[in-house]
């Protein structure tokens, strides 16, 4: 396979190109159609080019409180991202040592990926219903009197999202630490660094680019999550839930404008993450060891 390109290469390359077209083609079509003119419809031809449907969307014309859903999803996504990074990093460090129940914890995390989201969502909803009933019936009256529910975006909703993002975070951490050269840590320790200093000045700078990747998973998976959110968000919907509700009554291109807007956020986050990773990698290459070099 090293000399020249075989016919198989061209066949496979063509297949790959078709696959990429299959992945991106439809998305590109709705990005184009979201700039449809005011009289345009759901399909081609384009009746002019305008930002009409974006204005309509953000003024709330036709669709309820998109700006609110947008803000809620953004806030939740950022919190999920921060917690995913922090908890996965801590768990990743923990899994390098021996601790009781580590196998069980690993299986639970993987099971959380495989158990259908709707089942997890239902379970959390039932859990919070039972909790609410307990508080209403047995809590001191000064609590029970004004209590309505503990279900909400940053309680049940946040927990539901974490059961989806954390397993990915843990798997990425495993991939990182499988390749991590523990001799760096030993060297730091031999020179008298405390465990905290070793972590702060040796381990974290080395794994930083991959940590950005964990954050990327955390935000994007939360930003687009529906199935787990469906029963757990309490009173207000997140943006993907609003979007899904809209699909039952697709009549004009504002749904494309919404699609383009949310995808723009996803792409912005992906771009920021990839850029940060390349900057961190470049910095590592620049400041890397000069041992053994003339």
């Amino acid at each position: 396979m090293n000399e020249g390109r075989s016919p198989a290469f061209y066949a496979l390359a063509a297949f790959f190109a078709l696959f990429v077209l299959f992945l991106y083609g439809p998305m590109i079509v709705i990005f184009i159609l979201s700039f449809q003119g005011p009289t345009g419809g759901l399909t081609f031809p384009m009746n002019g080019v305008s930002l009409h449907w974006f204005y309509r969307l953000w003024e709330g014309g036709g669709i309820v409180d998109i700006a609110g859903a947008f803000r809620r999803s953004l806030a939740l996504g950022l919190v999920v991202m921060a917690l995913t990074v922090l908890l996965s990093l801590m768990a990743g460090l923990a899994f390098r040592k021996k601790f009781g129940g580590s196998d069980a914890l690993f299986y639970v995390a993987v099971a959380s990926l495989i158990v259908p989201s709707i089942v997890t969502s239902l379970g959390i909803a039932i859990e919070f219903h039972v909790l609410d009933d307990l508080v209403k019936n047995y809590a001191p009256s000064w609590i029970a009197a004004t209590y309505t529910t503990s279900m909400g975006q940053f309680t049940s909703g946040l927990g539901a999202h974490l059961t989806w993002t954390l397993p990915f975070g843990l798997l990425v951490m495993f991939a990182i630490f499988n390749r991590f050269d523990a001799r760096y840590e030993e060297a730091a320790r031999d020179q008298g660094a405390t465990p905290w200093q070793t972590l702060r000045y040796v381990v974290l700078p080395i794994v930083a680019p991959s940590i950005v990747g964990v954050g990327l998973f955390g935000f994007t998976l939360s930003w687009d999550e529906i199935a787990r959110s469906s029963q757990t968000m309490g009173e207000h919907n997140t943006l993907p839930m609003e979007l899904q509700a809209l699909t039952t009554t697709v009549t004009n291109p504002d749904i494309y404008a919404l699609g383009t807007s949310t995808t723009a956020v996803s792409f912005a986050v992906i771009a920021i993450a990839l850029f940060s990773i390349s900057v961190l990698n470049a910095r590592q290459a620049r400041q890397g060891s000069d041992a053994g070099q003339a």
């Binding site: 801590m90 768990a91 460090l93 040592k97 009781g100 129940g101 639970v108 995390a109 158990v115 954390l166």
Partner: peptide, 24 residues
Amino acid sequence: PGWIQAMPFGLVFAAFFVLPLAFV
């Protein structure tokens, strides 16, 4: 110790995955 570092991660799954499945 490892189990303390893994605790927050484990608690999330206890509260929002294992317990909910038991409730189901």
